[in-house]
């Protein structure tokens, strides 16, 4: 499937968040699921907020939709009033079977993309997103791995060259793909440091665990600290195909 992957772009539409510069161009080759959402306090019924804010929110979404379409993307849009933004985002990922969520930070033309690769799991989806977003551009992709102490160089080479092969399979030019390996560092800090010299980051989401419960998802932490756009590639949702 080299069809356009669905990328979710959540925008807090009534709180001054808009589509930052460079984002429509970045997503020109994808299928954009544009989610305008408005988080309201529990004292307020969602319908109450809708009565008052719907027109304004629809007007803004119209504008954004046009921006994405002009850039070349196909667009679907939803407007949701919610008490719980995360629940809404999760539901959209599920309902639209989104490959990735974009944390939309402003960017110029993207020339260097950092792709942290954690392990063999999820490489396929990660490659698919990278290839379809950046395959038709001149951007250079750097596959990055922070190795644990007990991993041998061979293991890492297998992992990264496997991923390179996947990217080429999906139509990327192998000359635009580089690899980089670091050792003896905390992966999260390393990624944030290295990312400084890149324009965009594409990384996989982590399985929920106690650590992610306490500290938040690494991908979210990177998104908080990195100033450019971050694509968070989603795990495969087990039952995504059952009833759509």
């Amino acid at each position: 499937m080299t069809d356009r992957p669905s990328i979710l772009v959540p925008i807090r539409v009534l709180e001054g968040e808009s589509v930052p510069e460079g984002i429509p161009e970045l997503l020109a080759h994808t299928h954009v699921v544009l989610l305008g959402y408005h988080v309201i306090p529990e004292q307020t019924a969602p319908g109450q907020a809708r009565m008052q804010f719907e027109d304004r929110a629809v007007g803004r979404l119209d504008e954004y939709e046009e921006m994405f379409e002009e850039a070349g993307a196909t667009v679907e849009r939803r407007l949701v009033f919610t008490h719980n933004g995360q629940k809404t985002i999760d539901r959209m990922i599920y309902e639209h079977d989104c490959m990735a969520v974009l944390v939309p930070n402003a960017t110029g033309p993207v020339e260097d993309v950092l792709v942290p690769v954690r392990g063999a799991i999820g490489v396929d989806r990660l490659s698919r997103v990278v290839a379809s977003v950046f395959g038709a551009t001149d951007a250079d992709v750097t596959l990055y791995h922070v190795a644990a102490e007990d991993t041998t160089d061979d293991d890492i080479q297998t992992l990264l060259s496997g991923m390179t092969d996947r990217l080429v399979e999906f139509g990327m030019d192998s000359s635009t793909i580089e690899t980089r390996i670091d050792r003896d560092r905390k992966p999260l800090d390393a990624i944030v440091d290295v990312a400084d010299s890149f324009d965009a980051v594409v990384m996989g989401e982590t399985d929920p665990s106690l650590t992610t419960f306490v500290f938040g998802m690494p991908a979210d932490q990177v998104a908080d600290r990195f100033l450019g756009p971050v694509f968070v590639v989603q795990r495969e949702r087990a039952s995504a195909d059952e009833d759509g």
């Binding site: 949701v80 919610t82 539901r91």
Partner: peptide, 14 residues
Amino acid sequence: DAVVHDDDVELERT
């Protein structure tokens, strides 16, 4: 999960 109005406007159930 939601109450759906026309124009794809939804009210999330939380």
